[in-house]
Amino acid sequence: MEKKKKKKITEKSLSMFLFTVPATVLYCVFFIYPIIIGIMYSFTDWNGLSKDYKFIGLSNYITAFTNSRFQNAVKFNIRFTLMAVILIVGLSLILALIFNNSKLRCMSLFRGIYFFPAVLGMLVVGLIFNEIFYRVVPVIGKGLNIPAISSNILASKSTAIYGVLIVHVWLAVAMATVMLLAGLQSAPEDLYEAAVLDGANRWQKFRYITMPFLLPVLSVVLILQIKSGLTVYDIIVALTNGGPGGATESLAVLIYNHGFKEVKFSYAIAEAMILTIVICAISFIQTSISNKKKVY
C-alpha cells in the first residue's frame, strides 16, 4: 500500500515535469537563445557575414550614442510617442466615458464602428492610408483651399511625422477605448447609487468611485501605448519607409536597416539592446507604481 502511493506520486510529478518540456524547449531555442547570442554579438564587430570577428567591448554602444542617425531616431520616437500617448489616452478616455453611459442611443452601432480598427492589421491599414494621403487628401485640401494638406503630407520632411501619427492613433484608439471601458464597467453600479444617497456630486463620484477602478487599467493602457510608440515599425514601412530624408526613421526602422540592409549586424543589436533597456525600465517603473497603489 505504502509503496503504491509513492509510485503514484512519482508518475504525477514526472508527468508534471514532462508537461513543462515542450514549451520550455521552444522558448529557450527560439526566444532566450537568440537574445543571449544577440547580447554577445553586441560586444563584437561582427557584420553578419564575415567568418571571424573580435570582441570590441562597449564600442558599439558608444558609437550608437554619438551617431547622429541614432540620435535622430531617438528624437523621432520620443516626439512621436509623446504625441501619440496624449492623443490616444485622451480620445479613448472621452470615448470610454461616453460609451459607459447606457442611455446612449445606437450604442451597438457606435461600438461596432469604433472598435473595428482593433482587429485590423497595421500593414494593410498603413498601405490604405498611404494611398489616401497620396491621392485623396490633396484633392480635399485643394477643394477647401487649405494649403497645409494640398500636397502629400508624407512627402514633406516637416509633416510626415503627423501622417504616421494619424494612422497610428486611428488604429490604437479602438483597443485603448475597449480596455478603459472594461475598467469603468468594473465599478459596481450600487456604489454610485449609495454615493447619490449620500449626496455626492458628479466630481466626487468620478474622483472616489470611477478613478480607483479606472487607474489600474489606465496604467496598463499607458504602458502599452508607450511601448508601441517606441517600437513603431509596420505603419512606417507601409507609409514612408523612414523617409523623406530619414524624417520618420524610427528606432525599429533604423535597427532593421542597419541589421539587414547595411550589414552592421552587431551594431544594430547594440541599438536594439538600448531600446530594450529603456522599455524594461519603463515597464519596471510602471509595475512598481501600480503595485504601490494596490497596497494603498
Partner: peptide
C-alpha cells in the same frame, strides 16, 4: 523548479522583438 520556470518564462514579455530578430533569423 516551477516557480523559477514561471519567472523565466515571463522574462520575454519585456523584451521587444527587435533585440532578438537578427539572431533569430540566424537560428
Amino acid at each position: 523548479y516551477y516557480k523559477y520556470l514561471y519567472y523565466f518564462l515571463l522574462i520575454g514579455i519585456f523584451v521587444p522583438f527587435q533585440v532578438k530578430m537578427m539572431p533569430l533569423v540566424q537560428v
